[in-house]
């Protein structure tokens, strides 16, 4: 088997915030009835985390689950555990009408950290990034300049971004540009 590499091969940039390619991330798209008990068990078995409610993201250690739409969750596990997690999901949902696909290699993940992360995202996405309006525990799917992206805060001052791998270089460029020293706006300061 070939050696998997992330889209930007660990690139990073120090600007008003630190932008970095967050590396390989196991991701499973899980669609089905979110109200079913089997779905709750599938998420628990695969990640150890609770099934997230609307617009929520839950985590347990290196794993977690994010609410993507009323019938879709994004299950996140360490890259090397994706196949195993998928098997656990398939086992838990046997007999249900569902779909679970390993999409790890179809996506890219970035992390920005520093005091100005809210501002960097606010420059790129039509999302209210004010403290209080966007906090750890919630996930927002939105538009980042010209492409779709999902963003969430892992803790104060750290935001993760997931996008399609095909636009990874574009998104990395956007983030670096928005973090260019001299471009501070200070709106959330």
């Amino acid at each position: 088997m070939s050696d998997a590499v992330s889209a930007l091969k660990g690139a990073s940039f120090d600007g008003t915030v630190t932008v970095r390619d967050a590396g390989l991330q196991g991701m499973i798209t899980l669609r089905g009835d979110q109200g079913s008990a089997k779905m709750t068990k599938a998420v628990k078995d695969a990640t150890g985390a609770a099934k997230p409610g609307q617009r929520e993201i839950t985590s347990s250690g290196d794993s977690g689950a994010a609410w993507m739409s009323p019938d879709e969750l994004l299950v996140m596990v360490p890259y090397d555990s994706a196949t195993e997690a998928l098997t656990k999901i398939d086992t838990a949902l046997k007999g249900e009408h569902y779909l679970a696909v390993n999409v790890s290699d179809a996506r890219a993940m970035f992390e920005i950290s520093g005091a100005g992360v809210r501002e960097v995202i606010a420059k790129l996405c039509p999302v209210d990034m004010s403290p209080g309006a966007f906090e750890p525990g919630s996930i927002r799917r939105t538009r980042m300049a010209q492409v779709a992206a999902a963003i969430w805060m892992t803790e104060a001052g750290t935001i993760r971004i997931v996008c399609f791998r095909s636009v990874a270089e574009y998104v990395y460029g956007l983030l670096c540009d928005a973090a260019e020293p001299g471009g501070e706006v200070g709106y959330f300061a």
């Binding site: 609307q54 739409s69 009323p70 039509p126 999302v127 927002r140 939105t142």
Partner: peptide
């Protein structure tokens, strides 16, 4: 009405 997000036009 599905995700409860209040977004501006360009997200739709």
């Amino acid at each position: 009405p599905y995700c409860g997000v209040k977004g501006e036009e360009t997200e739709f």
